[in-house]
Design a binder for these strands. Structure first.
Lengths: 116, 116
DNA sequence: AAGGATCGTTACGGAAGCGTTTCTTTTTGT
DNA sequence: ACAAAAAGAAACGCTTCCGTAACGATCCTT
């Protein structure tokens, strides 16, 4: 069943969640980094640098750098593809799953508070 | 009436909207800038630098810089408060309203596509 | 086996963001 | 009237991101 949002509700939801994200500011990811992270966790694997670059419409170094950053934060991990050792397979981590779980809860909570 | 979202729906919504934002990438605002913009347009005025800094939990120069950037993009405008000329009042613009209207439509569209 | 294509990374110069500190203008309190 | 306080901006050094271009490593084709 689809979610029916009014314009006001849509923007209020975005506002409230963004504000909370800024206020707690635990990791301070950019919009691109969040997109990458969500894509890795929501879309079926395997995920490669090239594939992510195409999906997001950005250059490959952008993906490499984002993975560097999020790798240090333990939100994702990388390993060579044994089938084709040119490829790098991006994998999920426990830390990343927990981070997104918290984000999901935040969105749900803010959505619950919405009234017309 | 509150919006009831499942965890999967919540993250999918965030994913889809973030992805579209990155892909079109017309303005490339940071999460903080988006928060400020939404706050200005959704919360009752007046809005000051100090007030925004407190709301977001950041320092005042962060707000000043964000307003510089978004001012150049015509998304907001600033003017001195005549009542207390130390204050700067942040105002909405047509361009900013259009930008957020598009964002609202995007969220609504993606929400509509969501299924359990 | 060799040349070319593909994949991810690194290097580079530049742009933009950050927090702290300093400064100017304006208001407030005595 | 004058010192202290407050608001916002500017200056500073630092970090991080950006896109382009160049680079090794690996695969594919012949």
């Amino acid at each position: 069943m689809p979610i029916e949002l009014s314009a006001s509700q849509a923007l209020t939801l975005w506002h409230d969640v963004s504000l909370q994200q800024v206020r707690v500011g635990q990791h301070d990811l950019t919009l691109r980094q969040i997109s990458i992270l969500l894509h890795i966790y929501l879309m079926p694997p395997p995920h490669t640098v090239r594939g992510l670059a195409e999906t997001l419409g950005v250059t490959k170094p952008v993906i490499t750098r984002a993975l560097d950053t999020m790798g240090e934060l333990q939100l994702v991990s990388r390993s060579r593809d044994d089938k084709d050792r040119r490829n790098v397979i991006i994998k999920r981590t426990l830390e990343g799953a927990l981070y997104l779980e918290k984000l999901g809860d935040l969105i749900i909570d803010q959505g619950r508070k919405l009234s017309i």
